[in-house]
Design a protein around this nucleic acid. Structure first.
Length: 809
DNA sequence: ATAGGGTTAG
């Protein structure tokens, strides 16, 4: 068809001298051209341009209808620039040309230019169709309010709305936030008033609109309209079925679906995608099979749904097979509707971490949209490739809110809080208004970094934007204030929240537990139960650590049992690890061993980490080395464990063990300081220092530790404890020992110089190790000071010789 | 020259 048309047009005698003959031929052939849809053949577009140039060169003034035809064809070829210049050349464009251009502008998403053309049209020239085009254009652009305003203007301008108007208006109304049934009724009356309620398209739009109301009566009204229709078409059925699917009532949708006699492919697709969206994968597959057996061909929409199913249920082999089938059998997809298929293929490969395959699909997409870029970005993020992901993110030409959200929360969740906040700031500089999801990600990033001031600013932003009432942001704020040491403010946010869910309670309990207020945390837990909020596994993790901090070992044991008995939550390794930590810290090592023996699974890294720290506190060298050896065979879950490991080996004099740990840390790029800095063993605190006299602070450190040791002895607090300063002499050991970073101990100096009773907040981003921790714990007891220190990601709250992290002096 | 339905990224 295309070829015949092209050959015919190619035969046009462009060099003919008779302008009128040419014009008539143009008109005829342009009419022929316009029948070729979709008009994507670039040769045809070139021909169109050649004709255009020829008209200009010949000085011939074509009649309006020929100009209109040009505008139409240029618009269909997505060459709006030429369409517009054609329009501007027309001395008196008529309403048809204007409307064509208006529709073309809406098609490319430029509603402002469309409005300009419309506004520049004198009232006397306008007709109902031009208003209808504006209304439906706004409707497709989800600008419901503007559509409604234009409808009102239309009535004011004394035009009579027709069925096209009402259909456009009703579908536009769905884009207005918080559709209520009263508003629907008003529009329904308008449809009746203008005598359009019998038109199928109007009723269909009305069904869709009623179904969109949040209230329960929405779907009832929709069904009433459906029942009252004398004539139904396939879209009527599709609309009502989709309406049920959207409300999550897949069964009612299926009931209607089964009651249909002639099902068009769209209905099948709607039903299948409904099942996929609600996770009913086997039902979706069953429907695909019966669709296939009935001989209905799968189209882009079917493939998109079924590939989504594969991607979200982990059926990667099946997804790949379908991809192969598509390549073989479906070469002539419509390029516009094929894009989602390609996008979901990128997602499929991204989800199974086949980045190469994802990339291959991605680069071959002809016209990528934001979804394509975001799908590829999620591949990088999902594979944990933060740097590569960020490099890719920067190249995205059409970033939307989701691109920013993914990147910011990726940074926040991978411990790159500073990058997350930098990007958040960048986003605000670029004038993008953050959504509540991004704001809560940013608040979480602040929590991780202890960036209290910025956190407060975002809180202010949340209050201004009205997002503060949402649960996700409220919960993030509670956590942020708690992690920044501001328990009272966390409390304040908690009580100001209109709706508390289990996550809010978890956050508040954790806030108290982190600051050593174990008793209060348990009080909140009881109140949570009193309010009939069901605790989850996280609640129990938190409550176990609250018991730990409050020293309530037996109560912790009871909660552990209650978790299974009363709430049917199966204890995971993390729960067992906390239980063992609880027992271990209290010195009940034998019981801890019994718990390990009773576990329904083999102990993993979390368990051995808990054992290891118990052994460090209680000087059980034998068990400690055993735990360390076990941990060596697996991957420790906390970076701090490596320090513990090296300390444990050093305490046993196993320097080769220390060397192994250091190598492991280097290989795994653990950012903690490797080596052995501090050991507490046999009531002695051993601090290993490299006698690096070149280090300007090293003698300060020596003096500080000596002074601290002397003060401790003077207090008689732990008569047998003393600091032993080892200058590591032999070269082979020097490598394993750590030159204690003066920065950590600078905290100690500051503490000693401040007056008693002062609350000290150290907001600098430093990490404290065992030596500093012990020193600060001691000082908090010695000087009766509340001390809050940020250690990388978390806060240590020292009070009366107890630290919120549960490490006692 | 205008209208109503199904798809994709966290």
């Amino acid at each position: 068809m295309n070829k015949i048309a092209y050959d015919t047009i190619a035969g046009v005698p462009l060099h003919s001298v008779n302008v009128t003959v040419i014009a008539n031929r143009y008109a005829a052939h342009l009419r022929l051209l316009s029948r070729i849809t979709p008009l994507r053949n670039t040769r045809l577009l070139f021909l169109l341009r050649a004709l255009h140039a020829h008209i200009l060169a010949s000085g011939f003034k074509p009649r309006t209808h020929i100009l209109n035809r040009f505008i139409d064809l240029y618009s269909k070829s997505n060459d709006l620039h030429s369409a517009r210049s054609m329009f501007d050349q027309t001395s008196h464009p008529d309403i048809v040309g204007r409307t064509t251009l208006i529709n073309a502008y809406f098609k490319i998403g430029d509603h402002k230019s469309a409005r300009e053309i419309f506004n520049a049209t004198p009232l006397i020239v306008r007709d109902t169709v031009s208003y209808n085009s504006m209304i439906s254009g706004y409707s497709r652009a989800s600008l419901g309010i503007r559509a409604l305003e234009l409808y009102k203007q239309m009535v004011r301008d004394r035009f009579i709305p027709d069925d096209y108007t009402m259909t456009g208006l009703l579908s536009a109304a769905g884009a207005i936030a918080d559709v209520d049934s009263r508003g629907c009724r008003q529009l329904h009356s308008a449809a009746i008033k203008y005598g359009t309620e019998g038109v199928v398209s109007v009723s269909n739009a009305l069904i869709a609109l009623y179904a969109m109301c949040d209230s329960i009566d929405g779907i009832i009204f929709a069904h009433e309209v459906f029942d009252g229709m004398l004539v139904k078409d396939e879209l009527t059925w599709t609309t009502i079925i989709i309406s049920y699917v959207r409300r999550g009532d897949v069964n009612s949708a299926r009931f209607l679906f089964d009651g249909m006699t002639d099902r068009v492919d769209v209905v099948w697709n709607a039903m299948i995608s409904g099942y996929v969206r609600h996770g009913l994968f086997s039902e979706a597959l069953e429907l695909c099979r019966s669709m296939y057996s009935k001989g209905i061909t799968f189209d882009e929409f079917t493939y998109t749904s079924v590939l989504t199913l594969c991607a979200s249920s982990g059926l990667f082999m099946m997804g790949k097979a379908i991809h192969a089938h598509i390549i073989r059998a479906c070469s002539n997809f419509d390029p516009e509707t094929a894009l989602p298929v390609e996008n979901v293929l990128v997602t499929l490969y991204s989800k199974c971490e086949k980045l190469n395959s994802a990339w291959n699909v991605f680069v071959n997409i002809g016209s990528k949209d934001t979804v394509s870029w975001n799908a590829m970005l999620s591949g990088y993020i999902n594979a944990g490739l933060v740097d590569a992901g960020f490099a890719f993110f920067r190249d995205i030409p059409c970033k939307n809110m989701l691109s920013w959200t993914m990147m910011i929360s990726c940074f926040a969740q991978n411990g790159f809080g500073e990058d997350a906040l930098k990007l958040f700031t960048r986003m605000r500089i670029e004038g993008i208004k953050p959504c509540d999801f991004i704001l809560s990600s940013a608040v979480s990033a602040c929590a991780g970094l202890g960036a209290l001031e910025l956190g407060r600013q975002i809180h202010g932003l949340l209050l201004l934007s009205g997002y503060d009432s949402s649960n996700s942001t409220g919960n993030a704020l509670v956590t942020m204030y708690a992690k920044c040491g501001m328990v009272e403010e966390a409390h304040h946010v908690f009580y100001s929240m209109s709706c508390l869910d289990y996550i809010s309670w978890n956050a508040m309990i954790a806030a108290l537990a982190q600051h050593g207020r174990g008793f209060e945390a348990i009080g909140f837990f009881k109140e949570m139960l009193h309010n009939r909020i069901r605790p989850d596994r996280i609640t129990f993790l938190t409550i176990l650590s609250a018991c730990n901090h409050a020293g309530l070992v037996d109560q912790g044991l009871r909660y552990f049992d209650s978790m299974k008995d009363d709430y049917n939550i199966v204890a995971g390794e993390d729960h067992y690890a906390r239980l063992i930590d609880l027992l271990g810290r209290a010195g009940r090592i034998t019981e801890a061993k019994e718990v390990i023996a009773s576990m329904p699974f083999e102990p993993g890294p979390l368990i051995w980490e808990a054992v290891l720290s118990a052994c460090r506190i209680h000087e059980d060298l034998k068990l400690g080395i055993h735990a360390a050896d076990q941990l060596f065979e697996m991957t420790p879950q906390h970076d701090g464990t490596y320090v513990l490991l090296s300390n444990m080996y050093a305490a046993a004099g196993m320097w080769d063990g220390v060397a192994k740990v250091r190598k492991l840390m280097k290989d795994r790029q653990i950012k903690k300081e490797p080596g052995c800095s501090w050991i507490e063993y046999g009531n002695k605190v051993h601090v290993f220092l490299v006698s690096d006299t070149n280090h300007p602070d090293i003698w300060e450190v020596h003096r500080f530790l000596e002074m601290l040791g002397a003060k401790m002895r003077k207090m008689g607090y732990t008569p047998n404890t003393k600091f032993v300063l080892h200058d590591v002499e032999s070269e082979e050991h020097k490598e394993y020992a750590l030159s204690t970073h003066s920065e950590k101990l600078a905290v100690g100096f500051a503490l000693l110089k401040l007056p008693a009773g002062a609350t000290i907040r150290v907001m600098k981003n430093l990490r404290i190790c065992g030596d500093c921790h012990s020193a600060i714990t001691f000082i908090s007891l010695l000087m009766r000071r509340e001390i809050i220190v940020r250690d990388g990601k978390r806060f240590h709250h020292f009070e009366n010789g107890v630290c919120s992290c549960g490490n006692y002096w």
